[in-house]
Design a protein around this nucleic acid. Structure first.
Length: 462
RNA sequence: GGCGUCGUACCCAAGUGGCUUAAGGGGGCAGUUUGCAAAACUGUUAUUCGCCGGUUCGAAUCCGGCCGACGCCUCCA
């Protein structure tokens, strides 16, 4: 029952074997900080978070690196539009990004290298590629990678570039290159770059986007490391180019497992900034989404299938989160004996099997919910002994360490709501149902749900 | 034009040759409970897996054709 992961490179599920026993080097392509990230971007980050949490659960020590692209065409363009320094712009969106990660309960990476901090090393890599004749200079000071010099070019994306159609983008390419599909390692200075310029032996300019990730990943994880993740749109050209640069400069295989998550869709197609059909985290907060509810929506579909993000599913995810949290409280109230150790119910093995099968979250969730239903009933009917409750508690803890769906921090009840509850309690004692219902309505309008249980009133976030 | 993914109930979504006359969730309907609700619980909601044909003792699962959706082919998670 080993962990199997779908490797984009082989297009197959492969048994996962790290380079060093019990350690995993994980590189995940981070955001370009020229604007807020949208929920489509976060689908990928939540998938990567899930992968990391599962690896940790299996006992691996994970070294997780997520880069911050703070230097590229888009960041420069945006800073210029706003009339601010590049650093001011990228610092601003980096901090927004960090806040969003935290709000979504995505565990922090071990390191967030920024492109601007690695320019010397990028220059070194480009120089190496020039020395080895994998790259060439052009008159404007740019340096390009000659894709015909690397015969494995196209192996990741499974593209045969010779048979490709010349797309509009290639025809519109304004750079002077030997072959239109060669990509820039270094972009010679242009007026639009302003003072975002660095000096290299072959001329002034700035690094191309692809070389940034090659350098940062090699520098932080080594020339050959375990896992590199990103969205499917990064397969080509970004990751293809990374492989070319990295393997040609080091002479070693670059990454052992390439994992890519599919797109998040909205009606009409993929969510993207250029189409304008996207939601920022702030938009979702305004729609009253909780982080847990969003996590459920993004994880209840397998990471390699397209999922449709829709407000219509909010009810479904909200309800699941409530059921899970109720189950958590039920177990908590039944005082599991933690000292009984780490025993887990048999269902855990099925759950583990599903997760080990390329992180099959839909199946794993089905297994868990099925178990939760019967377990919950047993406890309510007092048919469960402390040992069983204890192992149920352990399983729930494991489950939550992977999915983080439970709302542990149910907010403090505001004073005015607490006061209304007291009045309602009195009204109920007097069997003044009309008044009682009226208060319930008022409390609901304040965003809280009152439930009358045998133990009295219970309050939940609506 | 090249490459690739997908099509399972009202919706989301597993299952990829027999354990399945198809998990799980949401919604609907009926019931238990409740002052009424809510929550919870019980029952019910696909003899069928886009369509057509083939292979097989046996197919949602394999093969072929067709239809449809989506993605990539140097902005993109």
């Amino acid at each position: 029952m080993e962990l199997r992961l779908y490797n984009t490179f082989s297009r197959k599920k492969e048994n996962f074997k790290p380079i060093k026993d019990n350690q995993v080097g994980l590189y995940t392509c981070g955001p370009t900080v020229y604007d807020f990230s949208h929920i489509g971007n976060f689908r990928t980050f939540i998938f990567e978070d899930l992968l990391k949490r599962w690896l940790v659960h299996l006992g691996y020590k994970v070294n997780h690196i997520m880069n911050i692209t703070d230097l590229d065409d888009k960041t420069i363009k945006k800073a210029k539009e706003e009339g601010v320094d590049l650093k001011e712009l990228t610092d601003r969106y980096t901090s927004h990004f960090m806040e969003d990660l935290k709000w979504l309960k995505i565990l922090p990476a071990d390191n967030y290298p920024r492109a601007t901090e690695y320019i010397d090393r990028m220059i070194d890599m480009i120089q190496t590629l020039l020395d080895k004749n994998y790259a060439y200079k052009e008159n404007d000071g740019s340096v390009y990678f000659n894709i015909s010099s690397f015969k494995k070019y196209g192996n990741l994306a499974k593209l045969d570039l010779k048979g490709q159609k010349r797309t509009k983008r290639i025809n519109d390419d304004e750079y002077d290159k030997d072959s239109p599909q060669d990509f820039a390692l270094w972009k010679g200075w242009k007026e639009a770059d302003g003072d975002n310029v660095w000096k290299a032996p072959w001329g002034k300019g700035r690094p191309g986007w692809h070389v940034e990730c090659s350098v940062m990943s090699i520098d932080t994880l080594g020339e050959n490391f375990d896992i590199h993740c990103g969205g499917v749109d990064n397969i080509f050209p970004h990751h293809e180019n990374e492989i070319a640069q990295s393997e040609c400069s080091t002479g070693k295989p670059f990454v052992n497992y390439w994992l890519h998550s599919e797109f998040l869709m909205v009606d009409g197609g993929k969510m993207s900034k250029s189409l304008g059909n996207y939601y920022k985290i702030e938009d979702l907060k305004n729609m009253n989404f909780s982080a847990e509810s969003i996590r459920y929506q993004l994880l209840s579909g397998h990471y390699r299938t397209k999922i449709l993000f829709s407000f219509n599913k909010k009810h479904e995810s909200d309800k699941i989160i409530r059921r899970l949290t109720d189950f958590y409280l039920l177990l908590y109230e039944n005082k599991p004996i933690k000292s009984l150790g780490k025993s887990l119910p048999g269902t855990y093995l099925e759950f583990k099997k599903a997760m080990n099968d390329d992180l099959n979250t839909p199946r794993a969730l089905g297994i868990f919910f099925d178990w939760m239903k019967t377990e919950s009933k047993k406890i309510k009917d007092n048919l469960s002994n402390t040992e069983e409750i204890s192992s149920a508690w352990n399983f729930l803890k494991v489950f939550n360490s992977i999915f983080d769906f439970i709302e542990l921090n149910r907010q403090e009840v505001p004073e005015n709501i607490a006061a209304m509850l007291e009045i309602r309690k009195e009204a109920r004692r007097n069997k003044d149902w009309a008044y009682s219902d009226q208060i319930r309505e008022s409390i609901f309008n304040e965003g809280w749900l009152v439930e009358d249980t045998p133990d009295g009133q219970k309050l939940k976030k609506a």
